[in-house]
C-alpha cells in the first residue's frame, strides 16, 4: 500500500482533539471560539481529503481515459 495510511489516524486525531477543544471552550463559556476551532479543523481535514480526491481523479484519468 504505497499511500500514507497515517493520514487516517491524523484525521481521526484532529477530529477527537477538535471535539475535546470544543467541549472545553464551551464549558469556559466561549462559544464563538469553539465554533471557530471546529471550522478551522474542518477546513484542514477537508483540504487533506480534497488533495487525495484530486489525486484519485488524476490517476483515474491517466489509467482509463488515455491522458485525455
Amino acid at each position: 500500500m504505497p499511500y500514507n495510511v497515517d493520514a487516517i489516524f491524523q484525521i481521526a486525531g484532529i477530529g477527537i482533539i477538535v471535539a475535546m477543544m470544543h467541549t472545553v471552550l464551551k464549558q469556559m463559556g466561549k462559544e464563538d471560539y469553539a465554533h471557530w476551532v471546529t471550522l478551522i479543523g474542518f477546513i484542514v481535514v477537508l483540504f487533506m481529503v480534497v488533495m487525495l480526491v484530486q489525486d484519485l481523479f488524476q490517476t483515474i484519468k491517466n489509467v482509463f481515459l488515455f491522458h485525455a
Binding site: M1, I11, A12, T38, V45, T59
Partner: peptide, 21 residues
C-alpha cells in the same frame, strides 16, 4: 463530530481505491 467521521470514511475509500488502481 459526524462531519469528521464522514470525511474520514471518504478518505479511507479513496486510499483503498488508489491502492487498487
Amino acid at each position: 463530530k459526524p462531519v469528521f467521521a464522514f470525511l474520514l470514511a471518504t478518505f479511507t475509500g479513496v486510499i483503498i481505491f488508489l491502492s487498487l488502481i
